[in-house]
């Protein structure tokens, strides 16, 4: 029996991953381009500490706006993010079981792991993995983190990112995000379009046509300065919020085509320098606490073979 509404899908995934021992977190209340930016993934992937978390994260990708006209490409959409550290031996099987819980029969659908390595130049991060295809549609990103903020990952985080809307198209058998049923009760049926269509049209216009380029450049500079100032004060978590803000300002400038190709590279390097600074500062702060969530064996291996943290 497949899950009937968008919200039921979220509830099912939350229940499933909670049962696998994940800390259920809530969306970070800031604009991010991907669930990876959430500190529960980006920062927790650093250092020898164990961590398992799952959460929904709304994502903003200004250049993906299509004024609500493309059936499955929106500038604002939902990811369901799972991060398991260390990645368990049976991580692929766990993931496939979650699909079964959603009512997907892998003997009907063509489910495949297709190489898609991940690299985030702004986060100084990369990993190897796949996009998971169901009947040719990418429904999930699956990544083994190898480096984050310029630091080697050990133990390795396995990251599973579901594209909720795309998955829902299958479960509900519709063609267009707008037709997705968000919730259904005896008295009312609410669709994705009811919730988001007007927003998608307006935000596409804002991203492509109205965003104030001059103010965004200034905002970027401000966030960069704040990050530096806060890192000097050893406040990595606060500093990281300004990295996220800087990154979003850059994405908006990109959508406005305000950044030339050469400039683009320079901006990416600027954000990356900030991310690296935050990663190192966060690492140092956890080390000062003696990595409270790490198990002994992993911690020893980490300190001997990966990094003494100096």
């Amino acid at each position: 029996m497949s899950v009937a509404t968008f919200q039921d899908m979220i509830l099912t995934l939350q229940r499933y991953w909670a049962d696998q021992g994940c800390v259920l977190m809530q969306p970070y209340d800031m604009e991010v381009g991907a669930g990876t930016f959430h500190p529960a993934t980006f920062l927790r992937a650093i250092g020898p500490e164990n961590w398992k978390a799952a959460y929904v994260q709304p994502c903003r990708r200004p250049t993906d706006g299509r004024y609500g006209e493309n059936p499955n490409r929106y500038q604002y959409y939902y990811q369901f993010q799972v991060m398991l550290k260390p990645s368990p031996e049976n991580i692929q099987a766990l993931y496939l079981d979650s699909l079964r819980h959603l009512g997907i029969d892998p003997l009907v659908h063509d489910i495949r792991f297709v190489e898609d390595n991940w690299e985030s130049p702004t986060l100084g991060a990369w990993g190897l993995g796949w996009e998971v295809w169901m009947d040719g549609m990418e429904i999930t990103q699956f990544t083994y983190f190898q480096q984050v903020g310029g630091l080697e990952c050990y133990p390795v985080t396995g990251e599973i990112t579901y594209g909720l809307e795309r998955l829902a198209l299958y479960l509900q058998g519709v063609e267009d995000f707008q037709q997705l049923i968000w919730s259904k009760s005896e008295t009312a049926t609410v669709t994705y379009a009811d919730v988001f269509h007007q927003y998608e049209v307006e935000m596409s216009a804002y991203n492509f046509d109205y965003a104030d380029v001059k103010a965004l450049f200034a905002q970027f500079d401000f966030c960069e300065a704040e990050t530096t100032r806060l890192l000097a004060a050893s406040l990595p978590l606060a500093a990281y919020e300004f990295v996220m803000k800087a990154s979003h300002a850059f994405n908006l400038l990109d959508a406005r085509q305000a950044v030339s190709v050469t400039e683009r590279q320079r901006f990416i390097l600027r954000v990356r320098a900030l991310s690296r600074g935050v990663a190192q500062a966060y690492f140092d702060s956890r080390k000062a606490l003696d990595f409270p969530l790490a198990d002994d064996a992993t911690k020893q291996t980490f300190l001997q073979e990966v990094s003494s943290g100096s």
Binding site: N70, P71, N72, R73, D105, P106, L107, V108, H109, D110, I111, R112, M134, D135, G136, M137, L169, Y170, E175
Partner: peptide, 28 residues
């Protein structure tokens, strides 16, 4: 033509799924 990795219990579901994917790609 797509090359699937399964003898599906319902090949039409796989075809329909693929058709649903290519359409927004081409729309793009």
């Amino acid at each position: 033509v797509t090359i699937a990795n399964i003898e599906s219990k319902d090949p039409n579901a796989v075809i329909k799924g693929n058709e649903r994917v290519i359409s927004p790609r081409l729309a793009d």
